[in-house]
Design a protein around this nucleic acid. Structure first.
Length: 668
DNA sequence: GAGTTTGAAACT
DNA sequence: CAGTTTCAAACTC
């Protein structure tokens, strides 16, 4: 259904829109853009620039009160700016319409560029922005949505007929995807914007991060076109959900599909967490928290979180074409796959008594923080959420939590206070320097040392072998900065010796037995996976999931490097990501930026193997961190052929996004 | 799930 | 800056 509709729209819409579109600067801008080349979009001074990202990240980045104002302003501008409140039309499909058209056009025109196309489109279309914003902004007079842009309105009117047929949800998802893409593609602005969105989202208090939330949302996927109320919820929920996931990477579990699309883009997954973290790489991509953390790593990083699900989902998507299809069918997929999938995953992975821990581990990376604060009100760095620069969400078990959008002022004030005391307090704890890898030419896989804990640890009893150790937790070796005693950090001792191999060996020894036992089990799975992979582009999700999940189980608790660690440094907070992007990266020359990106890509690649390439075989063989990292290239085509293909594809996409990044830099 | 351990954060 | 206390995550049972 969707596809045909779209096609209709595309065909019809394009011609029709032209007359009207041309009038709007936005459209012009869109036209000027090459769907494939995101780069273009950035350089081009579009009306947006002023509106959108000017002061984006401020919100989280630096909890300045002004930031909030800016944001509000930002939103106001959008909302009020152009649209004469047209409650009627705007209500439901305003948002979707414009974007849709554009996306449709672009999709039609471009076979590939999911990532590129959408981002551009979004960027180009104010409506897209607005939509996003609106959806994100609870406070914004949404019902209205009316706040779409003129162009959107006009278009909408024009296409009203067509649109009527179209289901908004699809578009919404598309939009959200596009937004994702956009976000990822344009590190700086997007980042900032993301942050913005984040706040807004949080404000909305709609916390979709949680799988549950998702589930709920997903369950009502399409429906609702009719009333605002009904629509509003689903729309926001869905869109928010997606965004929320990206942003916080919070609940990994979520929108696999969406992310998958992104994933094809590659950066995406991590992105949220990691990405946010791109530079540092958060809790992964820097943890995660670089997150993923962020992004991811963020993010990623963020990766970890989404990793499980994503992987599973990814397995289902091996080709761009698929991705495209997916985009088209997103809604459907969400409804169909996500719902069932999520629960399944949860059960698979999280039912065990260790559910909580596993969850945390998965999400640790980055950004997926879930605190359990009782006395700090989540307003101190004790609180992981607060420290990560994110609001607490449902999954948190905190008591008397003030780290919520409602208490935005308090949060910001507190943050400010803490920052005044320690400007780097909210900076990623683990700083990964892409430069080090590049410059030294070190093998990233063997040099976790390239990333270091910002201040170093102070461990006394844990020997830096447990997560008590922030270095270890961050997946980095101890450094001169550390004041630890009896350091045995598996990622690198303070004295410079690396225990990684040793640790691995030990771990392997420990796990070998387990693995052997598991091997027999997995053999069956392996065979299945091989068969499946060979037969189908996508591998059976269950297998991948298991594998993904398994590693943590099988491996010794302590020895397994936190997922985030691979992604990068402090993924943690989306907030910071923007900062990092702006400050360090901005200063970088384009070439250098590219390099960094490449590094990221490499890291990703490294990472991907871990997650994606957990073919049964690989899994068995490479339990240890190194093994995983090194193994990827060695993977047998037989076992991971499809995966590799995907991987390469992912990289390719990442590279595409690279150009866009530099484009942002010009601002400086 | 409760209790313990641990080390960062906060405080003095 | 050093010492102490508070805190929540990590870990153990």
């Amino acid at each position: 259904m969707d596809t045909p509709q779209k096609s209709v729209i595309t065909q019809i819409g394009t011609p029709i829109s032209k007359s009207r579109f041309e009038d709007s600067p936005v459209f012009n801008y869109i036209n000027s853009l090459s769907p494939i080349r995101t780069i273009k979009s950035l350089p081009i001074p579009h009306p947006f620039s002023s509106l959108n990202f000017t002061s984006p990240p401020s919100v989280f980045t630096s909890p300045h009160l002004t930031s909030s104002h800016k944001e509000s302003r930002f939103f106001k501008t959008h909302n009020s700016s152009s649209l004469p409140p047209n409650p009627i039309e705007s209500q439901e499909e305003d948002e979707s319409t414009p974007n849709e058209e554009v996306s449709a056009e672009e999709e039609a025109s471009i076979e590939m560029g999911l990532s590129q196309t959408n981002p551009d489109v979004l960027a180009a279309s104010p409506c897209g922005r607005d939509t996003t914003d609106l959806s994100l902004v609870p406070y914004a007079p949404r019902g209205e949505n009316g706040s779409c842009e003129e162009a959107g309105m006009e278009l909408q009117k024009m296409y009203d007929n067509v649109q009527g047929k179209i289901e908004t949800p699809d578009w919404e998802s598309l939009i959200s995807d596009a937004s994702e893409l956009l976000i990822f593609d344009s590190p700086n602005d997007s980042e900032a914007f993301r942050c913005l969105m984040m706040q807004r989202t949080s404000n909305s208090e709609a916390r979709f991060c949680t799988g549950v939330g998702m589930m709920q949302t997903m369950q009502q996927p399409d429906s609702n076109n009719e009333h605002e109320s009904s629509n509003a919820i689903p729309y926001e929920a869905v869109s928010l959900l997606h965004r929320g996931v990206r942003r916080r990477c919070l609940d990994f579990e979520m929108p696999g599909n969406k992310q998958m699309v992104n994933e094809n883009n590659t950066a995406a997954c991590e992105s949220s967490s990691a990405r946010c973290v791109v530079p540092s790489i958060g809790l992964h991509l820097n943890a995660i928290a670089m997150s993923s953390k962020d992004c991811k790593t963020n993010v990623i990083n963020d990766y970890s979180c989404s990793g499980k699900i994503q992987v599973g989902l990814q397995s289902s998507i091996s080709t761009l074409q698929e991705a495209l299809d997916q985009t088209e069918n997103e809604t459907r997929e969400d409804a169909d796959q996500d719902v069932p999938v999520e629960p399944a995953l949860e059960e698979l992975h999280l039912n065990s008594p260790k559910k909580k821990r596993l969850k945390l581990e998965a999400g640790e990376g980055e950004s997926c923080k879930r605190c359990n604060c009782k006395k700090s009100k989540c307003l101190k760095l004790y609180c992981e959420c607060f420290a990560a620069g994110v609001y607490c969400i449902e999954p948190c078990s905190c008591i008397d939590c003030f780290n919520k959008p409602i208490h935005e002022d308090t949060v910001l004030a507190t943050r400010k206070q803490i920052e005044s005391r320690n400007p780097l307090a909210f900076a990623p704890k683990v700083i990964r320097s892409s430069d080090s890898v590049l410059e030294t030419g070190e093998d990233p896989s063997k040099t976790p040392a390239s990333a270091r804990h910002k201040r170093g640890c102070n461990c006394k009893k844990s020997n830096c072998l447990k997560k008590y150790c922030e270095c270890y937790q961050g997946g980095v070796g101890c450094s001169i900065n550390c004041r630890c005693e009896g350091c045995k950090n598996a990622f690198g001792r303070k004295d410079g010796s690396s225990n990684v191999e040793e640790a691995e060996q030990e771990e392997e020894v420990e796990t070998s037995e387990k693995n052997i036992a598991a091997k027999s089990q997995q053999n069956t799975e392996v065979l299945m996976s091989k068969e499946t992979s060979s037969a189908l582009p996508m591998t059976p999700m269950p297998i991948y999931r298991q594998q993904l999940v398994q590693p943590p189980y099988s491996s010794s608790k302590n020895m397994m490097p936190p997922p985030q660690s691979f992604l990068g440094g402090g993924s943690s907070s989306g907030i910071y990501n923007s900062q990092y992007l702006r400050k360090p990266d901005i200063s970088l020359t384009q070439s250098r930026i590219e390099k960094s990106f490449e590094t990221v890509a490499e890291d990703r690649a490294e990472e991907m193997p871990e997650i994606l390439i957990h073919s049964p075989v690989a899994n068995i063989k490479s339990v240890s961190p190194n093994g995983k990292r090194v193994s990827p290239p060695h993977l047998d085509s037989s076992s991971s052929g499809s995966i590799l293909g995907r991987r390469s594809g992912g990289r390719k996409l990442i590279l595409h996004s690279i150009p866009s990044f530099p484009s942002l830099t010009p601002q400086h």
